[in-house]
Design a protein around this nucleic acid. Structure first.
Lengths: 119, 119
DNA sequence: TCCATATATGAATAGGTATTCAAGCGTTAA
DNA sequence: TTAACGCTTGAATACCTATTCATATATGGA
């Protein structure tokens, strides 16, 4: 059986056309998927949720998540590269905080969803 | 070098304590991480973005994403299990649509973030 | 009944990734 | 300079997962 193509080429052409029309740009979708993927890892999500309260150094986060500085540092690097967190160096320590964009709003909306869903 | 524990046990105790206090329940965090992970896969994210427009059958989605019904069906199963989409059977076809909860709001907020960030 | 179609599913494979371990860098204080 | 500390980094391993392929189920029509 050929699964590559449906026999009826497009079953609901108007719908598909309309959906394609209002589809965001590919770059936007990929950007969004990247952020979601980063937040989809429990350790990283916990880091982000922790940083809502105040800026923290790597050791603080390692204590929060019961993890190692190395593991946390690896995760922070990914978050930093994608612009979800920013860092500030002070002596031997590096303080991390949430980036000053709408990530926080996104997180709040996500939490709202998760809490609503539990009920 | 011992990386397990920081020498200074908690460098910013007040901050860590405050963050722990306002940390959501573990179940909520895991729920949220699951949703983010599902949305973090470009194919699945495209499915969700497509379904904002109108309900679609598997073939429609396969056409939208230039994929196979089998691959789409596998993804839809994951989205269905986690309650992000719902399905309705009509004859040989199965129509999928976004679940009637705040996922749509979440997606909008995400898009808002991604678009803002590009600029 | 028999066949074609739309979808679902299980197993296998290939690709991706989180953590660990070991080592390195940069800063501070002696 | 030396040592200690906080952090970073690269490689390796072990785990996870998306897609493919083959097959199965279910519905509708001849």
């Amino acid at each position: 059986m050929n699964q590559e193509i449906c026999q009826v080429n497009l079953i609901h052409e108007e719908c598909v056309a309309a959906a394609q029309q209002q589809m965001p740009q590919l770059a936007t979708i990929e950007q969004l998927a990247t952020v979601y993927k980063l937040l989809g890892e429990p350790s990283r999500l916990k880091i982000m949720l922790s940083l809502r309260t105040c800026e923290m150094c790597v050791c603080d986060l390692a204590a929060m998540l019961d993890s190692t500085p190395s593991a946390i540092s690896h995760q922070l690097k990914l978050l930093r590269i994608s612009g979800l967190v920013q860092s500030r160096k002070k002596g031997k320590m590096v303080y991390y905080s949430l980036a000053k964009n709408s990530v926080q709003q996104m997180l709040l909306e996500g939490l709202n969803y998760a809490v609503e869903k539990k009920a």
